Structure formats: structure tokens, C-alpha cells
Simulated scan of single mutants.
Amino acid sequence: MESLSEVLKQWPVGNKMSDKARQLQEELLDHPLVIKLRAKYPELNEDSIRLNLNRVYQYTKEHGNCSNCPGLDLCPNDFEGHYTMLSGEDQGGVTQLVDRKVPCKKFLARQSEQQVRSRVRSFYVDDLALSRGYSAEEIMFKDLERLKSAQQVMGYIDQTKQEGLQTRGLYLGGKFGTGKTFLMCYMLYELAKAGYSGVIVYVPEFVEDLKSMFQEPQKLKETVELMKSTDLLVFDDIGAENLNPWVRDHVMGTILNYRMNRKPTFYTSNHDLDMLEKHFSFTSKDGDELHKGQRLMDRIRPFVDYVLVSGENKRGK
């Protein structure tokens, strides 16, 4: 943004410049913001204002820009998302004009939004699912067949906000494309606004990536610790992965063993709980291991409420 001195440089020299400069000074002194400032700080005399015309010019100019805000990305002020605020402060018995930069509401809203999003981590989940905006109306009424399950998720969110972090999570089961991941991302976003951290993991790709992590023990340890410690953990599309005994018993088992009775874990799946137990009971390496499948389900079944998500397949729409 141009300063007062830069504006004056564009004017012709001589008497015409002097006349324009005096006219600008008078316009600034008569500006409603300056009149209001002097009313608030009556000890600020006209000489103090004239000695700080550059600050006064910036003050009025930036407030004008804010009144016609083109949006943060196009903010014309010197410091994006901030405007100049003037005040009078006593300095050695003399009131001096002091300026400071103040963040605008849009800047604070963006900052708050960034803080919310920073609380949610995703592994192999489309970022669009987390970065898009959500509304309660869209969640509840986009698909009326999904209304009951949406109400259960909304009820869980409200309960957590009122009572604090729960130890039980939710298990969202249902057909392909009914919005199970969408509901879980909404829950993470809403509870992130309440200060809770969250992680959502797309299980099929996570399981495949674990094979490479086996050669990177530090990365594996950090990933497991993050999933153990986060407030809210979502295993997305569980039951669609190609399971092996190591992943089931030493990764999933370790994470769930730590979280049960401590922090809630959530799941989306095309399987119901009985079908998921059958899935966990068979691996390509060792075949049927019913007791190991049941052992892992003992860390899931007692700690979730089952939510059937009905509705039409929305993928590709």
C-alpha cells in the first residue's frame, strides 16, 4: 500500500503541490476516524496529529480497505489480514500517537481453521475428505436414509463435547459409498474444534505400507505411537486389507490393546462385526486362526457401538 510520502511524490512541485498537501492534511484531520480518535484521546492536539500524518494516512487508508475487503488473499494492506490501529499513550508526561497492527476477523478465522486442521492427521485418506467444509444440514439431510446413523454420530459428538473424551468409539458398517468415511471426517473436524486431536487411517494402504516400514523400525515406532496416543483414531475401510499375522498381532493388536479403556477408536467397514472377526481369523500365511481373530475382536467389539449406515452409493456423484 502506498504511504503518504509516496502519494506526495506523484504530485507536481511548486505551489500546486503545497495546496494539495494542505488539502490532504485537512481531509485527514476531518476524517471521521480521526475525529473519533481525538474524541477518545482529547489530550492529542492538532500538532501531534500533523506530526504523524503518515501514520494517520495509513490508519484511514487501511480501514477503508477493510470496509471494502476483497478477501485475505487479495488484502491490499501492508500486512496481510491486519490493519493499523492508533492510540494515544503517555510518554514522559506527553501524549504520543502510537500505532500497532491488529489482526482482522477474517485473519483470526483462518488462523483458527488452520489450528483445527492441524489437530487432524490422515494416512492414505483423500485430503479432500478432510479439507472440505461441512454443515450439520448436509450431514443430516443430504440422504434421508442415512439420517438415523447421522443422528448417532451427531449425538456422539455432543456427548464428547459435554462430558469429555469417551472410552467407547463407533463402528460404522454398511454398503459401499454410503458416506461412512464422510461421517467420520465430520466427527474429527467437529471435535478438533473442541481441542481434540485425531488420526484417520485408510487401512488397506496402511497395511501395504507397513511392509516397507518393517525395514524402518524408527518410522514404524513413531507411527504406532501416534496412533496409540491420539485422542481419536479412525480405522477407515477395515476388513478390506490383505492381512498378515504380523500386522494383525503386533501392529493392530498393540495399538488396540493400548487404547482400550483409555481412548476411543472408530471404524468404517463393509463388514459387520461377525464378518470382521472371520476376516481377522484367516491370513494367507497361516490360514485359519480362530482364536487370534477372536483375540483382536475382543479389543474392538466391547469398545464400540455399532452404527448401520444406510443410503445410496454416492461415489462418482
Rank of each mutant, 00 (worst) to 15 (best):
E6R: 06
M17I: 00
K20Q: 10
Q23R: 07
E26W: 00
E27A: 00
L29D: 00
L29M: 14
L37I: 11
A39L: 12
N45T: 15
N54S: 15
N68L: 11
G71D: 03
E80Q: 07
G81E: 03
H82Y: 12
T84L: 08
L86V: 15
Q91T: 04
Q96N: 12
F107G: 04
L108M: 13
Q115K: 12
V116C: 02
V116F: 05
S118D: 13
R119Q: 10
Y134E: 13
I139D: 01
F141G: 12
E145K: 13
L147Y: 15
L147T: 11
S149I: 05
A150H: 04
D158I: 13
Q162G: 06
G169A: 03
K180I: 02
F182C: 11
L191V: 15
K211L: 06
F214K: 12
F214T: 11
P217Q: 12
Q218S: 08
K221Y: 06
E222Q: 10
M227P: 01
S229L: 08
T230V: 14
L232P: 13
F235W: 10
D237C: 07
P245H: 02
P245L: 02
R248Q: 06
T254D: 15
Y258I: 03
M260E: 06
K263L: 13
T268Y: 03
F280V: 01
S284M: 08
D286G: 01
Q294N: 07
R295S: 09
R299V: 03
V307N: 06
L308R: 11
L308I: 10
V309R: 02
E312W: 10
R315P: 14
G316I: 08
